[in-house]
């Protein structure tokens, strides 16, 4: 498949040395994207967690033990595995920013995309979305509610991108040259510990550009060639090493 190049590459960099695993990003995502709450989320094969915070450990015993939390949105891959397998063209890699989106009315619920995604970032709507009585009044006007039977995932809150572009046009600014803080997904906006950063990975003035180019930056399963637009950052080698399937003798990226 041809790798589509876009001028803007919206991307996220998560500083895993700052994440405390508080969960604010997960909750912010559910509220922003009109994901119906569930009374029991213990069966992770049935939940919808567009953003999911994983707990990583270095596997050592006390007192050498160490923990890191890894928030996992959709990686918005440059070469999305989900897109190539979709039989009904329900997945689009946007040329303006590189966001991978899901076109729900086209989705036939075959779940090939879920099988193809190496990051488990895709979810299937096993149930009709139901809110407690009255709570549907707090649905955001931004994101359509999905029915049972379709696949869905994180969109980098691309409705916020659309809003930011509209605002820029209304104010006579160039919508293709947004300022760093004009467009921020809900999870990044909510983060209370300064771990999450968002911006254009192609713009040298943006924090994410600088962070993604540092030697402690890495991406998940980078060598699969999916070219994710989500970067992680950690000064701890054991954390970076869990980002990919390293051979025992192989040097960790950034070491």
């Amino acid at each position: 498949m041809e790798h589509k190049e876009s001028k803007i590459r919206w991307g996220m960099v998560v500083d895993l040395d700052k994440c405390t695993g508080c969960g604010a990003c997960m909750v912010a995502c559910e509220a922003e994207n009109n994901i119906a709450p569930t009374t029991d989320s213990s069966n992770k094969l049935r939940t919808l967690s567009w953003m999911l915070v994983y707990e990583l450990t270095n596997g050592k015993a006390y007192p050498d033990h160490d923990v890191a939390y890894l928030p996992r949105p959709c990686m918005q891959c440059g070469k999305p595995s989900c897109m190539t397998v979709c039989p009904v063209t329900a997945i689009d890699k946007n040329e303006e920013g590189g966001i991978v989106s899901q076109i729900y009315p086209r989705c036939i619920g075959c779940r090939y995309c879920m099988a193809a995604c190496p990051y488990h970032a895709r979810y299937f709507n096993w149930y009709d979305p139901i809110w407690p009585e009255g709570m549907e009044k707090t649905l955001t006007p931004n994101v359509s509610v999905r029915p049972r039977g379709v696949a869905e995932k994180c969109t980098f809150c691309h409705h916020k991108y659309a809003e930011a572009k509209e605002l820029a046009r209304a104010e006579g600014r160039d919508p293709l040259h947004l300022e760093e803080n004009d467009y921020i997904p809900a999870c990044v906006a909510a983060c209370p510990s300064g771990a999450m950063h968002f911006g254009d990975l192609n713009n040298p003035e943006h924090t994410v550009y600088k962070m993604a180019h540092e030697k402690y930056a890495f991406r998940l399963l980078e060598r699969l060639g999916t070219d994710p637009q989500v970067y992680y950052y950690s000064k701890r080698e054991w954390v970076r090493r869990q980002g990919d399937n390293y051979l025992k003798t192989e040097k960790t990226k950034g070491a």
């Binding site: 604010a24 909750v27 509220a31 709570m135 707090t138 510990s193």
Partner: peptide, 14 residues
């Protein structure tokens, strides 16, 4: 910043 309770506070109205 906001915490995981505050960010779901609007929905608690209902």
């Amino acid at each position: 910043g906001i915490d995981p309770l505050g960010v779901a506070s609007v929905q608690m109205l209902y």
